[in-house]
Design a protein around this nucleic acid. Structure first.
Lengths: 309, 309
DNA sequence: CTGAGCTTGTCAACCATTTGTCCAAGACAT
DNA sequence: ATGTCTTGGACAAATGGTTGACAAGCTCAG
């Protein structure tokens, strides 16, 4: 049925071109007059007929114009040059600082409703990744400092942690499991109770299209090994809070590295390893969140696995 | 119910053809007179009977007209040429558009669970503002196009809208009411049923720290005026989908502007006003989402009001 | 930082064609 | 009678085309 000879569509009328490209009829005509570019054929009655290929190029030009390019330059380019220009991303955004103080006040005054709403609000506002790096992490630090300065009680600190945790669990539950790669087991060593670090890493991994497996805190080393084997993960990622002794962390990492088959990578993140000087054989240290991205990229390149999309 | 094998379908009367195709009786008759195309048989009394095949072709013609083609040319084509034209992709291009195609597939296959998860996931991933501009809006357009190409039924389109709406309502409910400025009343004029545009604007306003007041669709003009007065809003924002006639939109805006005290600003957004040429006195036209930001900034500067934080 | 000059989208004026709706008058069935 | 249908004529609105003008925005010296 699909005849080998293409039906060869004559072309789209100017109204269609306008709809498809978002360029007004006037503009289409004046471009033709000035630059000679959209050179549509004419039907028997002299009305314009734009070839689909032309329409596609016009739409591309429109997009580039919206990015700030000027028509005159674009018209002088051929299709290839336009395509090259089209593949260039934009800029990033910067975080805030004074905002954090306001939040600290919410914690101090036990305004849990306001806190919860602000959390949700901020996630929706800036996206999960930015929330983790630019809001949650700094805020946790601030709360810790405030606590050590005795401006906050344990009660407030726990309240804060619980609500932040609730937010992460709720948000992550709503996100698709993705089933992407790499598969990463998330846990902490015995003695490290803080879960928030794990949740933040889980969030970042999910956003990046990886497949995090949250095991919860305080898993004994032999159990971590068993879980890694059973779940066939690509990497094990441990989180260390600032309260954790860096010497203990180093020892634990060495022990785990020895017990864990080389097929599983071993990553470690969090404030607790910031003071570690020497690299540990076979362990990837991620003192900053950005290091996690680099680590992910490296794994994907090494594995040759496609980055999901 | 009736006999299972009944190829003997005499045809549909003109009233049915009108319902099926969306073309008025007058139009059907005048086409027959002028182009000779819909050539229905007649019953004993000389009344028109349209064959199902004809009705199908008429529906296709109607869809193509909605895409900017002119009736006269379409009538001159045979069924094959129409099918070819129907299948011609318009301006479909773009880098990450492949992503949108995946979503479109979810819609086509009624995978509502997957859709819902993907929605949540994407909001968390990129933040609400980016979701609105870079995902929801393009996706709505794509769904509309797919529908006009008959790749989607009305059922799928409604399912899609409902779930997207649900997402917005849930997300917005979780965000802080903010109580910021300006206070903006959101609604549509009578005849415009689409709510999604309003919800998207509500989302952007919320993110920007304004105070949106969602009134729901189809509010009569005098009621809008009353609501604006009672709720003491700074601006009224109307949304027009692409289905809304731009002439009607212009008239409605003029009428409302006249009835609305000058203290309330009047904004209008959506595809439906993209083709409006002349600015309307005292009305701020926002064909693109970015224009909303500019409009907000302008209002805040003019009012000298502090930007909420 | 400013002004001259170029760029560029929009609009007006005017014409031709297309096209949807309305109207008048008659036919027929309920 | 009343409502729906048919026919054909008339007409206003919309669309498309051409040419010319112009204001707002951008660029680039000075």
């Amino acid at each position: 049925m699909p005849s080998p000879s293409k039906p060869e569509v004559p072309g789209l009328p100017i109204a269609s071109a306008e709809r498809e490209t978002g360029l007004s009829k006037d503009t289409l005509r004046v471009w033709e007059r000035r630059y000679g570019f959209p050179a549509p054929t004419r039907d028997v009655h002299g009305e314009r007929l734009y070839a689909p290929e032309q329409v596609r190029q016009l739409a591309r030009i429109k997009r580039l114009m919206d990015r700030g390019h000027r028509p005159g330059k674009l018209m002088a380019m051929d299709a290839d040059a336009l395509a090259a220009l089209d593949a260039t991303p934009g800029a990033e955004t910067a975080p805030q600082e004074s905002h954090l103080d306001a939040w600290l006040n919410l914690v101090k005054t036990h305004d849990i409703d306001g806190l919860q709403r602000q959390f949700h609000s901020e996630v929706a506002r800036r996206g999960l990744a930015s929330f983790v790096q630019d809001v949650a992490a700094p805020l946790i630090t601030r709360v810790g400092e405030a606590w050590s300065r005795n401006e906050l009680g344990i009660f407030e600190e726990h309240l804060f942690s619980q609500h932040l945790e609730k937010l992460f669990r709720l948000t992550l539950a709503n996100m698709a499991p993705q089933a992407g790669h790499p598969r990463v087991l998330l846990t902490t060593l015995s003695g490290e109770e803080h879960t928030l670090g794990l949740l933040m890493v889980e969030a970042l991994l999910t956003v990046e299209g990886a497949y995090p497996l949250l095991l919860g805190p305080q898993t004994p080393i032999d159990e971590i090994v068993r879980a890694a084997r059973v779940k066939d993960v690509d990497a094990v990622c441990l989180s260390f809070s600032s309260a954790y002794s860096s010497a203990l962390a180093a020892q634990g990492l060495r022990d785990l590295r020895q017990a864990l088959p080389a097929a599983h990578a071993l990553w470690a993140g969090g404030y607790g390893i910031r003071t570690l000087r020497k690299p540990i054989e076979g362990v990837c240290l991620l003192p900053e969140f950005d290091d996690l991205y680099a680590c992910l990229a490296a794994w994907r390149q090494e594995k040759g696995g496609k980055p999901a999309d």
